[in-house]
Write a protein that binds this DNA or RNA. Structure first.
Lengths: 233, 233
DNA sequence: GTATACATTATTGGATACAATACTTTTCCG
DNA sequence: CGGAAAAGTATTGTATCCAATAATGTATAC
C-alpha cells in the first residue's frame, strides 16, 4: 500500500510506531482532539520518548497531529476552512493522477485495482475500521500507479487528512457507495478515457464532501491506552 | 514569506536552525551531495544534536535532504526522474493557485506582487543568492495569496526542491527572464484572466525546465563549516 | 604492489537525566 | 463560599551519555 519502505532500508522501530499511530488515526480509533502524551505512547509501544517525539513531529508535518510548543501533541481537528482547502487540493491532485494514469495504465494495474475493490467489498459492513482505511487506500493506490512519487505522497497526505475530516464532521461511513464509485473510475481507466475518469472522481469526491455535516465531537479527555495496545503489534 | 509562524507560537531554537539550513540550501550555498554532520551543524548553530536531528528529519520530509539510516544526512540529489515528477506536480499545483487567484485577487494583492518583483529587480545581478531565493518566493507568495494553506505548503515544497534541481542540472541563474515572466503573470491576474495567467505560468515553468541540462557537479567532500556560519545568525 | 583482515576513529541511534513549562490541587484570605 | 496565590504534579524541551554501526587507516600475507 502506501509508504512502502524502500528495498534497502530495513523497517526501523520508529516506523513501527509511526505506522501504528497512523493506522489508529485513519481507522478512527483515535479521534480528533485526543491528547497524545509521549510517555503513554512510548510505554505502549515499548520505545523511549526520543522515538515517539520524532514520530509525532512526522505526523505533525503531515497534518495529522497538532503540535503546540510546551503543550504537547493531539490528533488534529481540522476546521471547516481547512477541510475546504484539503478537498480543493485533493481534487486538483487526483485529477492529475487520473490524467496521467489514463495514458499509461496497464492491464496489470487494472487488475490490482479490481483486486483492491474486492478487499473493500470483503471488509464491507463487518469491519468498519478496515473499511474506512481501504476506501482511502484505493485513492493512494491510484496515485502510486501513476508513477509520480511526489503526487503519490501528496495524495497520501490529503487522503489521510480527509479521514480526520470525516471523523469530525460526517456520519458513519457507508462502504457500499464508495465501492460502486471506485468501480466506475476503474471502468473509465480501462477505456483510457481520462475525461470520464476525472468526471467519476469529481462526483465521488463531491459525494464524500457533501456527507460532511457539522457535528461536534465530545471533547472530554479519553483514555487512549487500551486503544494504543491494539495498534502496537 | 513562507512558513510564517503562527501568531501564538514563539519562534523556537529549532526553527532558527531549520530556517538557516533551509535558506543555505535554497540560496545554493550548500550544494546537492554535501554531507550534513550533526555535530558540525550543532556546533555552528550552538545547539545540541537533539535539535539538529529533528531539523534534519523535517528537511528530509520536505525532500531537501537525504537521510540514510546509520549513514547520516546529505543535501538531496534529485534524479532526473524525480525532477520530472516535481515539475509535473508543480505545474498542477500552480495552475490551481492561479485559477483561484484570478477569481479573488485584490488590488492590494497585486500591489504586493509588484512590490516583490521590485525586490527581485533590485537584487538583480549583484546578489545572486538573494536573486535565486526571491525568484522562488514569488511563486510561494502567489500560493499564499490564493488563501489555500494546503496548496501553499505544497507549492513551497516543490519550489524549494526546484532550487535543488536547478543547482544540479542548470547553468547559473539569470534574473532578468524570470522578472519579465513574473510581470506577465501579474498582468494576466490584473485582468482576472485565469487562462492567460496559467498560460504565462506554463511558459515560465517550461523555460525553467528547459534550462535544466544535465551537468554533474563535482562530488568531492566540501567543508561546510564556514558556509554554515553565514546562516547561523 | 595489491588485497584482505584487523584495529582505530568518526558518526549515528536511542535512552536517560535534568531543566523549564504547563496543569492541578490545595490553602489562605476576603 | 469564592477567588487568588501557592505548592505540588505532570509533561514537555534539551543536553548528555552509551551502544551500535559505518568509515577510515594500518599492517600483514601473498
Amino acid at each position: 500500500m502506501s509508504h512502502r519502505l524502500s528495498k534497502t532500508a530495513a523497517p526501523t522501530r520508529s516506523d513501527a510506531v509511526y505506522f501504528g499511530l497512523r493506522r489508529a488515526i485513519i481507522e478512527q480509533a483515535l479521534l480528533p482532539g485526543d491528547k497524545l502524551t509521549e510517555d503513554v505512547i512510548g510505554e505502549r509501544f515499548g520505545v523511549s520518548r526520543t522515538i515517539v517525539r520524532s514520530v509525532l513531529a512526522r505526523l505533525n508535518a503531515e497534518g495529522l497531529v497538532d503540535l503546540q510548543p510546551n503543550k504537547g501533541a493531539a490528533i488534529a481537528q481540522p476546521s471547516l476552512a481547512e477541510a475546504y482547502d484539503i478537498f480543493e487540493a485533493r481534487m486538483c491532485l487526483e485529477r492529475q493522477v487520473l490524467a496521467r494514469l489514463a495514458e499509461k495504465v496497464t492491464d496489470q494495474d487494472l487488475q490490482l485495482l479490481e483486486q483492491h475493490v474486492g478487499l473493500e467489498a470483503k471488509a464491507g459492513h463487518q469491519d468498519s475500521a478496515a473499511s474506512i482505511r481501504l476506501a482511502g487506500e484505493f485513492h493512494i493506490l491510484l496515485a502510486e500507479l501513476s508513477g509520480n512519487k511526489v503526487l503519490a505522497r501528496y495524495v497520501d497526505e490529503v487522503v489521510s487528512r480527509c479521514s480526520l475530516i470525516l471523523a469530525m464532521y460526517s456520519r458513519p461511513h457507508s462502504a457500499d457507495c464508495s465501492i460502486n464509485e471506485h468501480h466506475q473510475i476503474i471502468d473509465a481507466l480501462r477505456t483510457r478515457d481520462a475525461a470520464r475518469a476525472i468526471n467519476a472522481m469529481d462526483h465521488h469526491l463531491q459525494a464524500v464532501t457533501e456527507r460532511a455535516l457539522l457535528s461536534s465531537n465530545s471533547d472530554k479527555q479519553r483514555d487512549i491506552r487500551s486503544i494504543l495496545d491494539r495498534y502496537a503489534s
